[in-house]
Amino acid sequence: MNLLEVFTEVKESFCSLWKAKYRGNTLEIITHYTSPDSKFISVFITERDGKYIVTDGGWLMSGEYYESSLLKTKEFDPLLFYYTSFYKLRKTSNGVNDLYFSSTSEIDMVPNKVHDLAQFISQSLYTFHSLYEIDQAKDVQQREKFLGGVNNFLERIYLRKDDTKLQFGKSLGPKYESVRFNAIATEADSKIVLVKYITGVTPDYYRRSLTNATVDFDIATGSDLNSFIKNKVAIIDDQVSGFQVKKILPYVRQLEKSLDHEVSRWSNKGEIIDMFT
């Protein structure tokens, strides 16, 4: 086996990924660097006042490589800040999006700039993506843990009530298949208690959990089942990292409007028991 041949094959394969497109006075270079969304990173080169400008062309923030609404969240800002200073890049704007760039007057320094800029785009996106995916996985775990804990607790409350049926993860009814509650208690007189559990590992996930509950309670209130609803209960996880009062308070208040009373804190079990008596 000729290992030099292997090296040649590897090198040529990588090199053949590089492509170029003329765009008026600008050259687009498609590099071999990638994004988590299976895109190859492009950098753009143009000449201004005797200098070579190397830039992303605004494509990073326009969503060319990754969903732009996610990139415009606060979570991407610190990464951009870190990587722009790490690669010593500067920022300008095309009127719609920010452009990242650096410049040099020496032609043999252009490859360095291309390398740094492509790495900047690729690394900031992969870092963001990994944090996002890790949070998502953590959130699923946390949700399951909290669900198990509250389910057990409610079962114990309802053990003492023979005339009440407690069901978990049930929809509001055949007409409202997608409107689900974590628990629905049906009492002897057919009156129901609707229960939502609120948790989230980041304030973002927590807000999502809150708004989802608010909407579902509102749908229940507006439905023809409203006259059967005895109580609406939101049990909120106040011991999780996403529970940051300042960031979620308006959403808690909105949920409380839907409930017509305060939410119930998981740390105060007595408060929760009161809701079911």
Partner: peptide, 17 residues
């Protein structure tokens, strides 16, 4: 009334020195 780019997406963009 936005800056219209022809085929050159960097046309008209200022890169501060």
């Amino acid at each position: 009334q936005l800056p219209v780019q022809a085929d050159d997406l960097l046309e008209g963009i200022k890169f501060p020195t």
